[in-house]
Design a binder for these strands. Structure first.
Lengths: 213, 213
DNA sequence: TAGTGTGAACGTTTTCACAGCT
DNA sequence: AGCTGTGAAAACGTTCACACTA
């Protein structure tokens, strides 16, 4: 056993492999190969084997991988074996969609609480949970022992809410706010921004247009 | 002038720089430095200078960068100077949020059309636009001369809709569907998946827990 | 024989450190 | 004097190609 550190780029692909393995399980497939799995994941076979090698040797030469066993290994590596409590801050359209997504497909997660600042939203029930007042954010985080939060709130209040979450004990934040947030060492921040994604597409559209134009 | 190819990783950061430059403009700042801009963007000064160097030399040694001029250069490089038509497919909570986002902050984009399959949604007005029937997807794409589409629909129909979009002339797709999509050469696909993002956070949470536990 | 696991080659991205310009 | 722009070095990531083994 050689517990090498798993590279960032590999970690980013593990969830895709896990989904592919779940699909295969659902189809009743019990054994797979790096070729098949790579195809499903949209990567090269060599890359897939290299990625999996960081989790240890779980394949059988000449045969392939046991779908169920490999699925367990990937899930264990990702740390999605026990449900992680997630607090969603901001229950507009986006927060609403996120809450339903996590509540629905929640493999490895559960929506621990929903929080908003809008009095017309507080008290309503979304994804089976009553929306609570952001004023009690710290209590909610401590009550649920949540370490992960999702931010779907206006830019203007994002840094303040982020600071309060960290102060209350959150160490992982997924933000949909189009703004750079500052977090202390030891807190992981992942940012998803529609504007950024569209602008990257715009760049490639321009390049393609230039080649023709 | 040396029009070197802009690396992928640099392209991914340009939108962040553009936002930072717009913030500075809003604050009335006319000149900035790699140090200040890097701070706002959350990257190192050397990385920022290297990134900007791919767009040509626009800084002044000993002084810094002209905020307005640099903003124009970055916008031009990204291809967000003229509004790009975007079709949003799927107007559930997520599609709704995306439509409002693009319609609101739309620097470089405009929502050309909204499309859905649900009869109770078709005909309703969202973000100032009437939702159209997905049955007429191809006509909508051609009518608006849209080259970019956003997918916020159920997994089961995603590949089919994707194929139809490509067939109709779309060459850039941003998908929020948790599934690997196949697109032909020449079509750019960017994927955003909440489940993947949360699982990456779970990985880091586990690592931190292991260091303490 | 078929398919894994991995050393080695290759390509990309980041960082350093400083020459060069204003 | 101060900040940019960039060679050179280091770090990181991907792909190749094949030895190895069930």
């Amino acid at each position: 056993m050689t517990p090498r550190p798993v590279p960032r780029s590999t970690v980013a692909r593990l969830p895709i492999y896990l989904r592919a393995l779940e699909e295969l399980t659902a189809q009743g497939v019990t054994t797979t190969s790096s070729g098949q799995l790579a195809e499903l994941a949209g990567v090269g076979p060599a890359q897939l084997r290299r990625d999996l090698s960081f989790l240890g040797s779980h394949g059988v030469r000449g045969v392939g991988y046991d779908v169920e066993h490999l699925g367990e290994q990937v899930a264990t590596a990702l740390g999605v074996t026990a449900d992680l409590a997630v607090v969603i801050v901001g229950v507009g359209n986006l927060g609403h969609a996120l809450a339903n997504y996590v509540a629905g497909t929640g493999q490895g997660f559960r929506v621990a609480a929903l929080v908003d600042a809008d009095p017309t939203v507080i008290g309503t029930v979304v994804a089976g949970l009553e929306v609570e007042d952001v004023a009690g954010l710290e209590e909610v985080v401590r009550r649920e022992e949540a370490t992960v939060a999702v931010l779907a709130i206006p830019s203007a209040v994002a840094q303040e809410v982020c600071d309060r979450l960290v102060e209350a004990g959150v160490t992982g934040i997924l933000t949909f706010v189009p703004r750079v947030l500052q977090v202390p060492e030891g807190v992981d921040l992942r940012s998803v921004d529609l504007g950024t994604e569209l602008q990257i597409l715009a760049f490639h559209e321009q390049r393609k247009a230039a080649l023709r134009g």
